[in-house]
Computed example of a mutant assay.
Amino acid sequence: MTRARREWTLAEPSVPPHLEPGDVSTLGDATTAGVDLTGAVVPELHEAQVENSDLGRLRAGGGQWERVTLADCRLDGADLANLVWRDGSLLRCSLREARMTGALLVGVRLRSTLLEGVQGTLTSWHGAQLRSVVLRGCDLSEATFTETVMEDVLLEDCVLTGAQLSGLRCRGVQLRGCRLDGIGGVAALRGARIAEEDAVALLPTLAREMGITIGD
Rank of each mutant, 00 (worst) to 15 (best):
S124F: 14
L37I: 03
D36F: 00
C178M: 06
I214F: 08
L135T: 02
L140A: 08
R190G: 15
L75N: 01
S25F: 09
A30E: 12
L114C: 07
G185D: 13
G172H: 06
I183A: 10
G162H: 02
S25P: 03
L110A: 14
T148C: 14
G215E: 07
A143V: 02
L180P: 00
W125H: 14
Q64V: 15
G56N: 08
G137T: 02
E66R: 08
T205S: 10
S89L: 13
P204W: 01
G184R: 01
A128I: 01
C178F: 01
A40N: 03
R99A: 14
L95M: 11
V159Y: 10
V133C: 09
I194G: 01
D157G: 05
R169Q: 10
T101D: 15
S166H: 13
A103D: 07
D29R: 12
L45D: 07
R5N: 15
Q164A: 12
S25D: 13
L203C: 08
S53V: 01
C170G: 07
P21L: 01
G172D: 14
E197F: 05
L180H: 03
R131I: 13
V153P: 00
L160K: 05
R176S: 15
E142Y: 13
S166G: 14
Q64P: 10
H46F: 14
R208S: 10
R67A: 13
R86F: 03
P43C: 11
T26R: 14
T121K: 15
Q119P: 11
L90C: 12
D198K: 00
A11T: 09
V133T: 06
T148M: 12
A33R: 07
R99W: 14
I212G: 06
I214M: 14
E66D: 15
L160F: 05
D76G: 00
D72H: 10
L115K: 03
T9R: 07
A143T: 04
M100T: 06
Q49Y: 07
